[in-house]
Write a protein that binds this DNA or RNA. Structure first.
Lengths: 149, 149
DNA sequence: TTGCCATATTGTAATGATTACAATTAAATT
DNA sequence: AATTTAATTGTAATCATTACAATATGGCAA
């Protein structure tokens, strides 16, 4: 039931000389199966059930490692809520201010480079939007029809 | 020596029924004069010198208030480092991974709306880039010429 | 397969940013 | 100037994250 990208991820880890420990594989596997931009807490709770010896520190350590080698990106769209995302392709993040869910959307920031930054070395790009998602919009509209200008 | 936008900000506060207290004015004035995307700590330290009775809680309260009414935006480009920005115009943020400085750059996300999000209500947009700024680049290049792929 | 060594993991304690809250003070209106 | 309402203060609580030393484990060599 392995995600096709999972193997290639393992190879990348090996090539970097990173030990494929049980917990690391679990965290990585979780990220390849859950595109829900989970928090450390969510990952920890989910994996702790099947691997009761897993500590939260290890989740932090593993995620930090994966971010360092570029396999995982950090989503800091909101305070006190660091989220993680294994997707690599060009996309932005929309956070619903009502239900809290984070949606991916495609956006290409590379096609028209920013003139102002031509002498900057850009290693990382992200786009964050906030607002109300369609599902919450339909709920709100039916009751109040209030606009939050 | 008042910044031209300062008065209009005050009017906006009044129109919202927000009391123009001494500390609030100080924080607002600081933000209109310092476009350096300061942290709470930086604002507190700077203002505490001239207003020793200012508490850090008040800085937090004031900033949260200004964010709520839309006068200030939060920059969460990095963990543990919430920054504040009074600029309203369309722009993104570049953070130098070497010196830590945050640069503004112009970017227009409104001219080509994201098709995927047409049924979303978008209240807020931001673009975060990370990398190395020209000043740090020239320092690094002279010594190592190493590329961080 | 077994043993060894380097590294990963654990768990607790420390840190640091942010918030809660009750007492005090100040702003604005009469 | 008095009054009322809201802002401010300062301490303590909370929460996410990290530091660190002790322990356990992965992967290589024999």
């Amino acid at each position: 039931m392995m995600n096709p990208t999972f193997k290639s991820l393992l190879n990348l880890l090996k090539s970097k000389g990173i030990r494929l420990s049980h917990h690391r594989l679990k965290v990585l596997e979780y990220l390849t199966k859950n595109f829900s931009h989970p928090t450390v807490e969510q990952i920890y709770i989910a994996l702790h059930e099947e691997s009761p010896t897993l500590s939260k520190t290890t989740v932090y350590n593993t995620l930090n490692l994966l971010v360092e080698i570029g396999l995982v990106r950090v989503i800091n769209i909101e305070d006190n809520e660091t989220r993680y995302d294994i997707t690599i392709k060009n996309h932005g993040h929309f956070k619903c201010e009502s239900c809290g869910k984070i949606y991916d959307f495609g956006i290409d920031l590379d096609s028209s480079p920013i003139e102002e930054l031509k002498s900057f070395k850009i290693n990382y790009k992200d786009v964050y939007f906030k607002g109300i998602c369609p599902s919450c919009l339909s709920n709100i509209d039916k009751t109040k029809l209030k606009t939050e200008e």
